[in-house]
Structures are given as structure tokens and as C-alpha cells.
Design a binder for these strands. Structure first.
Length: 580
RNA sequence: GGCCCCGUAGCUCAGGGGAUAGAGCGACCGCCUCCUAAGCGGUAGGUCACAGGUUCGAAUCCUGUCGGGGCCGCCA
């Protein structure tokens, strides 16, 4: 139930009536006609730009269209007044019954209130995290994980069929490094002193892997050359790392639907097939790249390479798919992987990458564009840095200094709910400050607390009502006499609740889960404001002496709680029943 | 050199064709004997980096400039 969409339908239908009555010329395009909340609440409940949009094509004055449209709109019982204003806006005021109906609808739908059919069941693949399986997840991964998961939930809520996917980079040189690092820990487990050479991974997290290798292989591998043990140790260590990463993700409440392996692409002909497909489109050739402009790399040499003609699909330069020794570049399996996603039948692909991969976006889009013949759009969402703060100072991360902050560190200190909410209070492409002191603060200055507190207050109302012997199940509340909700502050909260279905669609269209967080803050703010007014004006308290009035007011509170819990569910945050 | 992101109130940030540009913090003023104060109400504060352009209308779209950050190269 998107009230704004309903009123827009009414506006468009009224415009059609005007055409039929000869008040407007036929054939007008109403696509740009919008019905939105006005910037200033004093203007009314909703505003439409119809008269301004149609004035020019209709060859009429905006005011004339607005007045004629107004006359038709007020005939609808939902519309109380329709007044032309400003440059040609038509401001509408809706009947209290409409807002009361929103409360009833929210109670009826529960956490599904606001669910949309916008996506029409389109299949979307959201690939996120995709951290190298060489160590624990760090803060940067955490933000990507939270964003990807929330975006996936948001799209699901908006009517898409979503697959959450993790691409395991287990095919490159870094997993060999992992294997060698783990082998040293294996030697250590066998009483030898490990030699963590420069370039190997020194982290303690590999010590248990060494122990496990000992348990599995005993001393058998100790005197063997690398060629004997590398593949086995690599596989063992990679699996151990992935188990660790899955645990980290679980800690955050993130569950993937699909794990795809880069390694699995090798030796199956999938890479070759993808490249050959491109070659069939004349997009693969042997050639030489121009040297990069500006400062030339010291070891730059012109070499003939196998190149992907990504410039044919919007990239700036063509990209190598083979190294000069004939092996694939890291880009080649990525081509095959995206080809795989396309052939699995997704209607839309979303990649969530760290901002440092920004230079990679155009070639990925070129791949997907080419391999899907332009059918499948690829959207790449870049995740900006997280800056950690502690005790009022920036918390510098350094692997060497041992101040490397893992996902586990963050979640253990701040909790999954707080971590998630805070990381969703910024646009993905803006840097984020994560201040350990502030995120745990129990005050209204902390948005996490503020929103949770609002939800807890709703629960508190329900508990109080129950103690007073008032029935507060949703069915009873929905059947309450909501006509008693007539105070401007109460109607105001109902109006905010009415925005939820519209917000879901806006956020989903823009792939911007942060909008949900900001909206929830507004709902919480309105609820707190109403609650505070109860201090002065006891008639605005939710629990009243008589059951009927109480139920109407509690229905409103409950509807706000429903929206908050629906929104928090998208963000992956648990709504709390009480503050502790 | 090229590409991407960013520049909005003192600070942190929303808003991304539409009316007088918003919120929180900070500042200033007022408020707690009581029933809902881990507070509440109010005020001040902005050439939306700059310059052109498109439009009936630009913080929003386009071009350029300046400033901040990121990326480039057979490393994934």
C-alpha cells in the first residue's frame, strides 16, 4: 500500500477525465507527473507537479490546468482540499481517515508493511565481500559485508529475487603464499622454528592451521619439497580460511547463498570458453598497449599481449587477459566468472567492491555488456574507507604494528547490531567514521540507541497496556476506533509511517540502504516527540483510562514499531524490547 | 597525464530537476515539586567550492576551473 502511488493514480485518472471532457488535449505524456510529500508540511500532505509538467505540451497556463485538476480531485473522498500554489504546484490535503487507514494497514501487514513489487521478481545477483581466503576479515570487509547484505535484503523487500554470492579468490598466487605460510606453522607445530620470510603471512591465525596440518599429515611433509605438499596444503589452508571467514560473517549475521570458486574455473575450460566467446565477437586480439601517460613505470616495456577490446564497451583502454608468459592475468578468471553469472540467467548483476578497485569498474562493465549482448546491467557499488576512532583519536591500523582491526574485534566490542547500523548511516561512496566511544553511548546523540529506544518504548507501551488489562494484539488494535487519532501530532506520526512504502522503493531504485537508516531515525524522532508531549498533555499518552481510546493510540504506536522493525530487518539489526 | 568519488550551517552529514535548502551536534535563551526527563521547548547560523550552459525552474543535469581523496603499471 503505497499511498503516494495511489494518489498519483488518482491524479493521472483525473487527467484522463479532463482529456475526455475536452479540458486537455489528448496524447499528453504523464510519465513525469509526480506526487510527493511537499518540502514544507505547511503546504499540505502531498503535492503534484502535474500542471507544471503539462503546461507546455498542452499549451496552457499551469494555473488553469491546476484549477481544473483540483476541481476533479476534491470529488474523491480521500482528498479534502486541493489548492494551486507557487509556480503551479497543486497541494493536496487528505482526510484523517486516510492516515488512520495507514495505521490499520501497517498493523495488518506487520513486518511485511511496505513490501513492494517494484522488482517484479527480477533475478539479481549481489556479489559482495569476496575477501581473499588468506586471513581474517578486517574492518574494510566488514562495511562491504554489511552494505551488501542490507542491499540484498532491501532488494528482496522491494520484490527482487536476490542471490547473495561470495567469489572466492582461491586461484591466484596469494593462496600459494598462504600455503607456504601455513607450512611454516606446520613445521612450528612439529617443534621446528618457523621461518616467516618477507612476503609470507605472519598472522597468529595460521598457528591452529599448522596444528591441524600436523594432526592430518604428522611429520610426513616435513622433509618434502614444495612441489610435493603445495597443492594439499593450499587446499587445506584455503578451506580453513574460508571456514574462518564464514564464522566471521555469521558473527555479523551475514549468510551467503552461493560461494563461487575462482580455482574451480581453471582446468574446466570455462576461462577459455569465455575468452573464445569474446574472440568470436572480435573483442580479443594480439596487440600492444600504449604506455601509461604521465610518469612512466621504470620497467615499462612495450610487449605484445592478448588483449580484450574493452574500449568497444566503454572502457578507456583495452585490457590484457594474458601475461607475456602465456598464463592468464587475474582479469581472465573474472571474465569467466561474470560470464558464468550471466549464463546462470540473472537479470541484473551487482558487484560490491572496495573503493580501491574503482579503476576496475569499466572493464567489468565492458565484460558483462559484451557477454550478455547488453542484456544484463552490471552495477558496481564502491565501498569507501572506514576510519576508526578511539578515545577521541584516529585509530591507525597497521598489520606490522599489530593494530590490525578485524571484523571480530569490531563485533566483539561494539556488537553486531551497532556495527551494522552505524555502517549503514552513510552512503556507500562516502568515507565513514566509526568511533568506538560514540557508537556505544547510551544517549539520544547515538542514532542506533535512538532508534532502538523508540522501538523499546513501543514494547513498553504494550507491556503497560497488558498490565492494565487492555487487549493489544494486532487484530484488536486494527479493529480499534482509529477515528480517535485526531491530534495533529498523532496524525503527523501516521503520515511519517505512510512514507515507508514509498521510501522502500526510492531506496531500492537507488540501491541505497542508508536511506532506510535515515528514515528510521525520523520515525523514531516523531515517536519520541509524541511521547514527550505526553509529559505536558496527558491526553497524548498512549495508555489511557478507557480501553477504546488506549487501543486507538496504542495502534499508532504499534504501527510505528512495525515500521521500525521492518526497517531494522532490512538493515539486519535486531529490534530490542527494552533498553538495558 | 588519464579515470572515479567528494566539496551543502562552526562540526558531522541528509537532500540528487520544483516552492522560503534540512537534521544532529556545538552556540545562545528558557524549562525538571508530578503523573513518560538515560531530558524538553525555542533562537541564531548557509554566495549549496567557483564560472559558464541547458531548463518555465538548478544545490540537483552538462562543460570547465579550483580544492580534497582514491586508482593506474602481465599484483589479485
Amino acid at each position: 500500500m503505497n499511498l503516494f502511488a495511489e494518489i498519483r493514480s488518482l491524479v493521472v485518472a483525473s487527467l484522463d477525465d479532463m482529456v475526455a471532457a475536452g479540458e486537455l488535449p489528448a496524447g499528453l505524456d504523464t510519465a513525469n507527473v509526480a506526487v510527493e510529500p511537499p518540502r514544507d508540511a505547511a503546504h499540505g500532505d502531498m503535492a503534484t507537479n502535474a500542471a507544471m509538467v503539462l503546461a507546455k505540451p498542452a499549451g496552457m497556463a499551469p494555473r488553469a490546468i491546476a484549477d481544473a485538476l483540483a476541481a476533479r480531485l476534491v470529488a474523491d473522498p480521500r482528498v479534502v482540499t486541493a489548492e494551486a500554489a507557487g509556480p503551479g504546484f497543486l497541494n493536496l490535503r487528505l482526510a484523517p481517515a486516510v492516515w488512520q487507514g495507514v495505521v490499520r494497514a501497517a498493523l495488518g501487514a506487520g513486518r511485511d508493511f511496505g513490501r513492494s513489487t517494484l522488482g517484479q521478481g527480477a533475478r539479481v545477483n549481489v556479489e559482495f565481500v569476496s575477501a581473499n581466503p588468506t586471513g581474517p576479515m578486517h574492518v574494510g570487509h566488514t562495511r562491504g559485508a554489511v552494505f551488501g547484505d542490507a542491499l540484498a535484503s532491501l532488494l528482496d523487500f522491494a520484490g527482487y529475487k536476490v542471490t547473495r554470492e561470495y567469489y572466492i579468490n582461491d586461484g591466484g598466487a596469494q593462496v600459494d603464499v598462504l600455503a607456504r605460510s601455513a607450512f611454516e606453522r606446520y613445521r612450528e607445530a612439529n617443534g621446528l622454528s618457523p621461518e616467516i620470510a618477507e612476503g609470507l603471512y605472519p598472522g597468529d591465525y595460521l598457528i591452529p592451521v599448522g596444528e591441524a596440518l600436523k594432526a592430518k599429515f604428522g611429520t610426513r611433509l616435513l622433509d618434502q619439497p614444495e612441489s610435493v605438499w603445495l597443492a594439499d596444503v593450499r587446499e587445506f589452508a584455503t578451506e580453513a580460511m574460508m571456514a574462518m571467514i564464514r564464522d566471521d560473517l555469521a558473527l555479523l549475521g551475514v549468510t551467503m547463498d552461493v560461494y563461487s570458486s575462482e580455482k574451480a574455473l581453471y582446468g574446466t575450460g570455462k576461462i577459455e570458453a569465455a575468452i573464445e566467446t569474446l574472440r568470436g565477437m572480435d573483442l580479443i586480439y594480439e596487440g600492444t598497449l600504449e604506455p601509461p601517460k604521465g610518469k612512466l613505470p621504470e620497467d615499462w616495456e612495450e610487449r605484445e599481449q592478448t588483449l580484450f577490446r574493452s574500449t568497444a564497451h566503454g572502457d578507456d583502454v583495452d585490457r590484457p587477459v594474458k601475461k607475456s608468459d602465456g598464463s592468464w592475468t587475474y582479469f581472465a578468471p573474472d571474465i569467466a566468472y561474470h560470464y558464468d553469472k550471466v549464463t546462470r540467467g540473472f537479470d541484473q548483476l551487482i558487484d560490491i567492491l572496495g573503493a580501491d578497485h574503482g579503476g576496475y569498474v569499466k572493464r567489468l562493465k565492458a565484460v558483462v555488456s559484451a557477454l550478455s549482448n547488453g542484456r544484463v546491467p552490471l552495477e558496481v557499488k564502491l565501498i569507501q574507507l572506514v576510519k576508526l576512532w578511539k578515545n577521541g583519536e584516529p585509530f591507525k591500523m597497521s598489520k606490522r604494528a599489530g593494530t590490525f582491526v578485524t571484523l571480530r574485534d569490531v563485533v566483539e566490542q561494539a556488537g553486531a547490531d551497532v556495527t551494522r547500523f552505524v555502517m549503514l548511516t552513510r552512503k556507500n561512496d562516502a568515507a565513514l567514521d566509526f568511533d568506538f566511544d560514540k557508537v556505544l553511548e547510551q544517549s539520544k546523540d547515538n542514532p542506533v540507541f535512538y532508534v532502538q529506544y523508540a522501538h523499546a518504548r513501543v514494547s513498553s507501551v504494550l507491556r503497560k497496556a497488558a498490565e492494565a488489562g487492555i487487549a493489544t494484539d494486532d487484530a484488536t488494535l486494527a479493529a480499534a476506533d482509529l477515528g480517535r487519532l485526531d491530534h495533529e501530532a498523532e496524525i503527523g506520526l501516521a503520515k511519517k509511517i505512510a512514507e515507508w512504502p514509498r521510501l522502500v522503493e526510492i531506496a531500492a531504485r537507488g540501491q541505497e540502504p542508508h536511506r532506510v537508516a535515515f528514515y528510521l531515525y525520523e520515525v523514531a524522532s516523531d515517536l519520541h516527540a509524541l511521547w514527550n508531549r505526553g509529559n505536558e498533555d496527558t491526553s497524548l499518552r498512549f495508555v489511557q483510562a478507557d480501553a477504546a481510546t488506549s487501543q486507538a493510540k496504542i495502534a499508532l504506536a504499534r504501527a510505528a514499531g512495525v515500521v521500525i522493525s521492518a526497517g531494522l530487518a532490512i538493515l539486519g539489526v535486531t529490534p530490542v524490547e527494552e533498553m538495558r
